[in-house]
Structures are given as structure tokens and as C-alpha cells.
């Protein structure tokens, strides 16, 4: 059954989109990832214009992160103060990101930038995840120095703040910067940015793992909401029909995934996810390098 997407202006198979939402939902339930970094490339593969894919995916992530943050909120795993600082950075970053997006779209380079960013980030994350989980399977123990108070240059920065829930006393500039970078990624790549923010919060800021996911989800809600509004206003690229289909598939898939996850072993799951990420990355990368059928193509916004 075909459905005509009003903003993307293409007709797609409704079950394909629901299935993709569901499939990525299963993965996100299984691995606890947002799934935006898989969904956006899949949408692009299925013929949705990259600009619409990115903006619409941001809209879907609002839904999935609200659903996620409510669960963490009840367990008290959200550091609101830290979340607020990350958020200020995130709003600044995503506003800058959408501006950059509009500018690059005018230059006719936005599709390239979206795909290149994906290839770079997916290859790094896929490789890191693969190595880490392969090591876990081979039972190789690594000694990781996790001192609670490592004093380095970061502690010399001004604007120190106390974050009670995270038991930290650090410069507010650090979470601001992390939030900013993630905001830019959210705008350009249509991702929540959890896959960048979570490691940054643990290793860079030194936050306790328990509050990391809840706090990052809290921040992601507002950043992706900001991206959604700005994309809608500047580029008119948010397709609510597509977003709704993805939300339905994603919500159901996430429940299935969460239940499956309790029965499967963690390391093997992570190897699997790493391989999926690397496969998507390889496909995107190949498309950038392979000689296209036609060197000329139509469309895109005019240069200014």
C-alpha cells in the first residue's frame, strides 16, 4: 500500500516505513540507542530526500526520547542542573547547525555533508564498538583508570558549577561545549546525538553512569524539538506523516527489542550492532565514491 508523503513529495510503501521504524525500534530497545543514526541513512536509501530525512527524524526522536526519559525520571536518574547546562549548549549548537544546514543547502552541498558526516561518525563508532565488544567476548581484560578526580587542564576553566546529582564540581563550559557539538550534529545529521554525548559525559565530564542516559535523553528532547521547529520554519522539511509512521513503528519495535534484550547476551548484541553500523557506513561510503550513473542531476534549492 502506497502513501503519498506531503512534504517529501514522494509516495512510499506504508509497510516499508512502518517496518523500518519497527526494525530500528527493535535495535533501539535492544541496545538502548536512539536509532537516529540508523534511521536517517535508511530513509535516504529508500528514496526520501536527505534534507527531509534529517528534519523528520529529529521530530521522531522527540517522541522516542520523551518516552525514554519518563522511565528514567521515575527512577530519579535525571540530573536537571547538568541537563540545563547541556541544553543551553544544545540549543545554541542546534540553532547554529540549522543555520549551517540552510546555508549548505543553498550551496547545493547539503546531501554530501549529511552523507560524509554519517560515514565519518558511523565508521568511528562502529569500529570502536566492534573492538570493545569483540574484546569482551574474547574475555580480554583491560585496565581502565577511572579515578573519580583526575585533575587536568579542564579543571582550570572558569565558571565552575556544582552538579549535585552527578557529584561533580566542574566548569559549566565543558557541558555547554558537549551540548553545543551534539546540537550541531542533531541539526545536520538528524540524530539525537546520544552516541556522542553518552561517552562524552562518562569519559570527558566524569558523570556517574546511572544518571548519564536519563540526563542525555532529557537534553535530546529539547534539542531535537528545537531542530524540528527551526527546520520547519527555515526549510519546510519536516514531514509529519512520515514522522508519525516512524513513531508508530519505533514505539512498537522498541518494546519488542527491550523484551528480546533480556534474553540475549550483551557482548554478542553489541558485536551485532557494530556490524550493522559498519554495513550502513560502508553502503553510504560506497555511494559517495562509486561513479554515479549520471553525473548531472536535477533539483535542490537555488544558490543565493
Amino acid at each position: 500500500m502506497q502513501i503519498y508523503l506531503p512534504i517529501a513529495e514522494v509516495s512510499v510503501n506504508i509497510f516499508l516505513i512502518l517496518g523500518m521504524g519497527g526494525g530500528v525500534g527493535v535495535l533501539s530497545g535492544l541496545f538502548g540507542v536512539g536509532g537516529g543514526f540508523l534511521m536517517t541513512p535508511l530513509l535516504i536509501f529508500s528514496g526520501i530526500p536527505p534534507a527531509v530525512a534529517v528534519a523528520t527524524e529529529a521530530n521522531q526522536i522527540v517522541a522516542s526520547s520523551i518516552s525514554g526519559v519518563l522511565a528514567h525520571w521515575r527512577r530519579g536518574n535525571v540530573d536537571l542542573v547538568m541537563g540545563a547546562v547541556l541544553l543551553i549548549g544544545g540549543v545554541a549548537g542546534s540553532t547554529f547547525g540549522v543555520w549551517l544546514f540552510t546555508y549548505l543547502r543553498g550551496l547545493g552541498q547539503i546531501d554530501l555533508v549529511i552523507k560524509l558526516s554519517y560515514v565519518i561518525f558511523l565508521s568511528i563508532i562502529g569500529t570502536l564498538m566492534f573492538i570493545e565488544s569483540a574484546r569482551a567476548i574474547l574475555n580480554v581484560r583491560r585496565k581502565v583508570s577511572t579515578k573519580a578526580h583526575q585533575h587536568n587542564w579542564m579543571h582550570g576553566l572558569p565558571f565552575k558549577m556544582r552538579f549535585r546529582k552527578s557529584r561533580l564540581y566542574i566548569s559549566a563550559l565543558l557541558p555547554f561545549l558537549v551540548g553545543f557539538v551534539v546540537g550541531v550534529l542533531a541539526a545536520i545529521m538528524g540524530v539525537g546525538g546520544g552516541f556522542v554525548m553518552v561517552p562524552a559525559m562518562i569519559y570527558l565530564l566524569g558523570m556517574p553512569t546511572a544518571v548519564v542516559v536519563g540526563t542525555s535523553l532529557f537534553q535530546i528532547i529539547f534539542v531535537t524539538a528545537n531542530v524540528t521547529v527551526l527546520q520547519a520554519v527555515n526549510n519546510q522539511t519536516v514531514d509529519v506523516v512520515l514522522a508519525l509512521l516512524l513513531m508508530i513503528g519505533g514505539v512498537l519495535g522498541a518494546q519488542v527489542g527491550a523484551r528480546m534484550g533480556t534474553r540475549l547476551r550483551g557482548e554478542q548484541l553489541r558485536v551485532l550492532l557494530a556490524l550493522i553500523v559498519l554495513a550502513v557506513c560502508a553502503k553510504l561510503g560506497y555511494d559517495l565514491i562509486a561513479t554515479p550513473d549520471d553525473l548531472y542531476f536535477l533539483g535542490g534549492a537555488p544558490s543565493h
Binding site: S67, A225, V233
Partner: peptide, 28 residues
């Protein structure tokens, strides 16, 4: 939907977020 997105893009964006918020809350 198309006309609305073009003409009232700010309201459209806000509505898109409200729908997402409702969907997330319902799912949870």
C-alpha cells in the same frame, strides 16, 4: 498539510513537536 507547512511553518513545527510529545507519553 503541505499548505500549512508552507504558510504557517512555525505553528506547523510546534504542532509536530506536540504530536511527538503525545506519542512519546502515550507509548510510555
Amino acid at each position: 498539510v503541505f499548505d500549512f507547512a508552507q504558510r504557517y511553518s512555525l505553528i506547523y513545527g510546534i504542532l509536530a513537536i506536540l504530536i511527538a510529545g503525545l506519542a512519546g507519553w502515550l507509548a510510555n
